[in-house]
Simulated scan of single mutants.
Amino acid sequence: MEPWQQSLRDSLTDPAQLTARFAIDPVPLLAVAQRYPLRITPYYLDLLEGPGDPLWRQCVPDPAELEVDGLLSDPLCETRLSPVPGLVHRYPDRALLLTTATCAVYCRFCTRKRAIGCSSGNQGPDFAAALSYIAQTPALHEVILSGGDPLLLDDDRLDDLLSRLRAIPHVETIRIHSRVPVVLPERITERLAALLGRHHPLYLNTHFNHPRELTPEAAEACQRLAAAGIPLGNQSVLLRGVNDDAETLRSLFRGLLRLRVRPYYLHHGDLVAGTAHLRTSIESGLSLVAALRNTLPGMAIPQYVIDLPGGRGKMPLLANAIVQLGPTAIIRAANGENVAVANPGRNEADK
């Protein structure tokens, strides 16, 4: 067993285990963890300072997750857009391959919290149905490996999957979405980096949300990937009480560039059931992005984007895309359709 696999085995999965380090009552968290599982790696657990800190809010269950918030378990309609198990085909030229239903840390804001950690794993031992669909769909030029976290596949299985994708002539690029460099950096071994480097053009987007996650261990993991020629991007989620202030975002984005990771997206939170307590308003997000301009180089400022409900796709939150703001925002989709989006999390400054 490799060290990273042992770390997964040693991860915290029971709220009662938190009492060994923090003076909390775990009882209110038990029902939350039964519905939305808990997992925190030993590495990430060591970064937590206590209840309510920005890293705690990302990974420790909160009773607010069980409140009825009017949001949906699958707001992006991924189930409807799945032609075969484990594959989401939303855009004409690319598809999302869900490699596993497990992650190193279960984020409380996850788009797929309806399923992640709630089932045994993946779509089959060899991804046959998904690979067959991709091979028979020549319009697909990019495959994005997601999940769960694709880097939790062992090296041999990951190499086999990438090799089979590379054997499909019309698949030009492969992208991996992984939070492993943030929460389980020991997984990024020299062997893994070399393995990934054999499958270029291959890109990796990771998921730092707060500057305290930019540790020496995370930096080493990112440098190892970059040295293998893998372009690195970062997709942050704008989260209340985590990174919803300009100085935190400024520090995060500057720090990412030092790690050779380019800030790619700043996601407005998806309308996922159980995440209302972490949501910000579109107005506050626009104000934050405006505050970053002229204080950061252009390459340090990610696109502020929203994934429109109903599977209508991702749109940059730019002035020409916003038709109306208020309790319900109207966003113009790429096809010109005006889409109503609930806009909770507003405060007096947004009105």
Rank of each mutant, 00 (worst) to 15 (best):
L8H: 05
T111R: 01
D307M: 06
R157F: 03
L145G: 02
V242K: 02
T13L: 05
C222L: 15
T41M: 01
I282C: 00
Y106Q: 09
H267A: 05
P125V: 13
P54L: 04
V32R: 03
V289P: 01
R112I: 08
P51C: 14
L256R: 06
A218M: 05
R35G: 13
L71F: 08
C222R: 01
Y36H: 12
A16Y: 09
C110M: 06
N209W: 00
T19H: 13
N343E: 06
L308Y: 01
L131E: 01
T111N: 08
Y304I: 04
A20K: 12
R187D: 09
C110T: 07
V272W: 00
H200I: 01
V32C: 06
M299T: 13
L204D: 02
E217H: 15
S73K: 11
E348C: 11
S281Q: 04
Q6I: 15
F253W: 12
Q223C: 13
H267G: 10
L271T: 08
L97W: 04
S82G: 10
E283T: 12
E348D: 14
L292Q: 10
G269Y: 02
C59W: 02
L196H: 00
N338M: 08
G52L: 08
L288R: 03
L239D: 03
A130K: 00
I24R: 03
L12S: 08
P297K: 08
H277I: 03
V272R: 03
S287L: 04
Q6A: 15
N338S: 14
G326I: 00
P3M: 10
S284V: 04
Y304G: 08
R57Q: 14
G274V: 00
W56F: 07
P138N: 11
I40H: 00
C107G: 09
T79P: 07
E247N: 04
R346I: 07
G86P: 02
Q223P: 05
V105I: 12
H141T: 14
Y203E: 13
F109M: 14
V105G: 05
V68M: 10
G121T: 10
L47A: 10
Q6V: 11
L257G: 09
R187C: 10
N205L: 13
R258T: 13
S11I: 01
N338Q: 13
R108K: 06
A228L: 07
P309I: 08
L288D: 02
P42M: 11
P344L: 12
Q5S: 15
A101L: 11
N320E: 15
S132C: 08
L161M: 02
F127P: 04
A135S: 15
L161P: 02
P316F: 00
L76Y: 06
L162D: 05
H177I: 07
N294M: 07
G298M: 09
V289N: 02
E213L: 06
A290Y: 06
S82V: 08
G70N: 11
N343T: 05
K314T: 11
N347G: 14
N294H: 14
R191W: 04
A101D: 11
V323C: 12
P231I: 08
P85T: 08
A290S: 15
L271C: 10
S119Q: 14
P37V: 05
G148Q: 07
A104T: 07
